[in-house]
Simulated scan of single mutants.
Amino acid sequence: MADDEISSVDVRDDVCTDYNRRVDAEHAQLIWPHPGMTVWYKNRRDRVTATTPWRGVDFWKMTRTPELDNYILVGDKILRA
């Protein structure tokens, strides 16, 4: 970011929406959203919000290298939306 003089980074709305859809789909395959479960990380709408549905190593692989096209980058040298 410093080399490219990027001053701000924001995820695109469509990318955020898709990520949340994938999180919810993965959680639906696990025990946490089961109606009989009462756990602290479900909100009032029974959406699991405080844990990742993926193993740590899988999440690390997903996020290790950013896909810059998924972001709005702003800076003196770059403007990508």
Rank of each mutant, 00 (worst) to 15 (best):
W60K: 10
K77T: 09
N20S: 10
D3Y: 00
T65C: 12
V74L: 13
T51M: 14
P53Y: 00
A25K: 11
D58V: 07
L30D: 08
A81S: 09
N20F: 04
T65S: 15
G36W: 05
W32T: 02
E5I: 10
P33L: 10
E5Y: 06
V57G: 05
D10H: 02
I78H: 06
R80F: 03
R44W: 02
R80I: 07
Q29P: 00
D4F: 02
V39K: 15
R55F: 00
M37G: 00
D18Q: 15
R21S: 07
A81Y: 02
Q29I: 02
W40L: 03
A2K: 14
K42G: 04
L73N: 03
R45T: 09
H34A: 08
M1A: 05
L73C: 02
T17H: 03
N20Y: 03
V9R: 03
T49P: 03
V23H: 01
A50P: 03
F59A: 11
T38C: 07
D46A: 10
V9E: 10
D14F: 01
T63Q: 14
V23A: 06
R22H: 02
F59R: 14
W40A: 06
K77M: 11
W32D: 11
M1V: 05
D58F: 00
G56E: 11
Y71I: 01
N20V: 11
V23R: 13
A2Q: 12
D76G: 13
N20A: 15
A81K: 12
Y71H: 01
W40D: 10
T38S: 12
T51V: 14
V74N: 13
V39A: 13
C16E: 13
P35V: 01
S8R: 07
Y41W: 08
D58C: 07
T51Q: 15
I72T: 07
S7D: 08
I6C: 09
H34E: 06
R12C: 06
V74I: 09
G75F: 03
L68K: 09
K42T: 05
V74K: 15
W32V: 06
W60D: 10
P66L: 15
P53T: 02
A50F: 03
P35C: 04
D58L: 01
I78Y: 02
S7I: 10
G56N: 08
R80Y: 01
E67T: 09
D10Q: 14
N43Y: 02
D69C: 03
H34P: 00
V23T: 04
Y71T: 02
T65D: 15
L30N: 06
W32I: 04
N20W: 01
G36C: 05
V48T: 07
L68W: 12
P33R: 05
V48K: 11
N20L: 12
I78A: 13
M37W: 06
T38N: 14
M1T: 05
M1K: 12
I31W: 13
A28I: 06
H27K: 03
E5W: 02
Y19Q: 15
K61S: 13
G36S: 11
D18M: 09
D46T: 05
D10N: 08
L68D: 05
V11A: 13
C16T: 10
N43C: 07
L30A: 01
D69K: 11
V15F: 00
H27S: 03
N70G: 12
R80K: 08
P33K: 05
D69A: 13
D18P: 00
I72A: 07
R12E: 04
P66A: 08
H27W: 13
D18E: 15
L79V: 04
M62L: 14
H34L: 11
